[in-house]
Every structure is written in C-alpha cells, then in structure tokens.
C-alpha cells in the first residue's frame, strides 16, 4: 500500500514511503521531522499547518502527501535564509505577535503569502488575510501589528 514519493521541501529533495492517505502535514512532521508545522484541527479551520505549496499558503492537513509530489514545499523551517530571520519572523518577535507559539508558524506562512501579493496591506486586509489562522492567545492585535511592520521593513 505504501508507495515511494519524492517531496521537495525547503529546497531539499526527500524520498519517503507513504500511504496514499497520509496527509502532507503528518508526513512533514513524522517522516521528515519538520515539526514546526502543527496540526490544530481536523476541519481545515485553524491554519496551524499552513505551509507554502508552490509559493502559496496551503493547509497541509488538507493535502495528501501524494498530491504534493512534484511541488515545491516551504515550511516554517525553510523561511529564514542564510541564518537571517525572515522579516516576518523578526516582526512577530519584535511586536509580541505570539504567546504560546503554537499557531505562529502557520500564521507567519499565511502572512508571507499576503505580503508576496500586497506590499502594504491595511489592518482590515491583514485581518481578512489571516482569517484562516486561529490564535487563542494574542487577540490578534499584535499579530496585525507585526505583519504591518514586516510589510514596511
């Protein structure tokens, strides 16, 4: 039942044996040890599992690993380049955009998708763009501030 698939994650090619039913989020976490991608729900609401699939924010709990074969995957672990934090990572740190930190990787990945297409989003646009990412700690206010500050960084 298991089959071998090739996944390109954070610029590295991996060959993994998976069942067709294996969710991409689970494979990233269990097989590739990329545990920064979290799973917080089972109905595609919470967004903790958000990664980039071909550059676009995607809920990796709602994608089968076999579907992702041939795609370019980026996870939170691949966001910092050459040891330097991504501007969003810095901004979340600077603006206290996280508390428990569980939703944070997914939140940052969604925000990165937003900033890729909108360089100076309004508060309202930011709040709309992170509708698919739930945070129970921060009340969102500092997340919005962080994304705004990263946009102008």
């Amino acid at each position: 039942m298991k089959r071998s698939i090739a996944l390109s994650v954070n610029g590295v090619s991996h060959s993994v044996e998976v069942e067709p039913r294996a969710l991409l989020a689970q494979v990233l976490r269990d097989d590739l040890n990329l545990t920064g991608t979290h799973i917080g729900c089972d109905t595609s609401q919470c967004g903790a599992c958000t990664i980039h699939l071909n550059g676009r924010a995607t809920k990796s709990c709602t994608v089968l690993a076999v579907q992702a074969e041939g795609a370019e995957i980026t996870t939170i672990e691949g966001l910092a380049k050459n040891g330097a934090l991504h501007p969003l990572q810095n901004a979340f740190w600077e603006k206290h955009g996280l508390q428990c930190g569980f939703c944070t990787p997914g939140m940052i990945m969604s925000a990165a998708d937003l900033l890729a297409s909108n360089g100076s989003p309004s508060d309202e646009q930011i709040r709309h763009a992170i509708e698919g990412n739930l945070c129970r700690c921060t009340g969102y206010q500092n997340i919005v501030a962080a994304i705004k500050s990263a946009a102008s960084a």
Binding site: S44, G47, T50, L53, R56, A57, T58, K59, T62, V63, S110, D113, L114, A129, I130, E131, G132, N133
Partner: peptide, 9 residues
C-alpha cells in the same frame, strides 16, 4: 470563500 489557504487550493 473559505480563507486564503482554501482559495489557493
């Protein structure tokens, strides 16, 4: 429709 991630897929 849905949210950004849902619209992307």
């Amino acid at each position: 429709i849905g949210d950004v991630q849902v619209r992307n897929r």
